[in-house]
């Protein structure tokens, strides 16, 4: 029984337990302002992140399709990726999922060269999961320095898995509005 108890606890943490909100795991601010906000998957969730940043008076520019070559010229000191796919958004942008993922990877690579920290947000919840969104999540989350997720989007623990058990700090919040607090704390 003693031996089984830790196994049970571990299983619970991996499964149903991952749906629970977690405390803020980012211990100190990592990002500098101004920041550049871009979409990964072209969902309208970027609009929600703009509201959160405005509420916190974070200085930012938003470009859903920001490209690597133009990053330096924006003067941005950090990068915020709003992750989640939208066929409507991709259609409006006239690009495929694969093209958008490549754009995001290129942008991140350029950000690394420039020494920028990268924050990933998934604020679309359960509705922004599924085959298409998961492509963007699995592509972008491992590239981030810090990730914030609305809990209903992480019921299966995908974000925990992609963040490598603490390798990338991950904070989970119950509501979209609650994502503002950890997001602001990430900025110096």
């Amino acid at each position: 029984m003693r031996q089984a108890a830790p196994i049970v606890c571990t299983l619970l943490l991996l499964g149903a337990g991952t749906a629970k909100a977690q405390g803020f795991n980012l211990k100190a601010p990592i990002a500098t302002q101004p920041t550049l906000v871009t979409g990964v998957g072209q969902s309208a969730d970027i609009e929600m992140v703009k509201v959160l940043l405005n509420r916190g008076k974070v200085v930012f520019k938003a470009d859903p399709q920001a490209k690597a070559g133009a990053l330096a010229a924006t003067g941005s000191k950090s990068l915020v990726l709003v992750i989640g796919g939208s066929s409507k958004g991709l259609g409006a942008a006239g690009i495929s999922a694969e093209v958008d993922i490549e754009r995001a990877k290129g942008l991140v690579a350029e950000a690394r060269k420039l020494g920028l920290k990268i924050i990933g947000l998934h604020v679309g919840g359960e509705g922004r999961r599924g085959q298409m969104s998961d492509k963007f999540i699995t592509g972008a989350v491992p590239l981030c320095d810090y990730v914030i997720v609305v809990a209903t989007g992480n019921k299966d623990g995908l974000f925990n898995q992609l963040c490598g058990k603490g390798r990338i700090p991950l904070d989970s919040v119950e509501k979209i509005a609650n994502a503002g607090a950890p997001l602001l704390k990430a900025f110096k």
Partner: peptide
Amino acid sequence: DKNIKDSLEKINAFPACAELFLQEGLPYE
């Protein structure tokens, strides 16, 4: 919820629409 989130750009473009469907700029839960 998904439809509101997918349409945020349009909703935000029209203040009366945003006032009805959003709470201080964010979607209802």
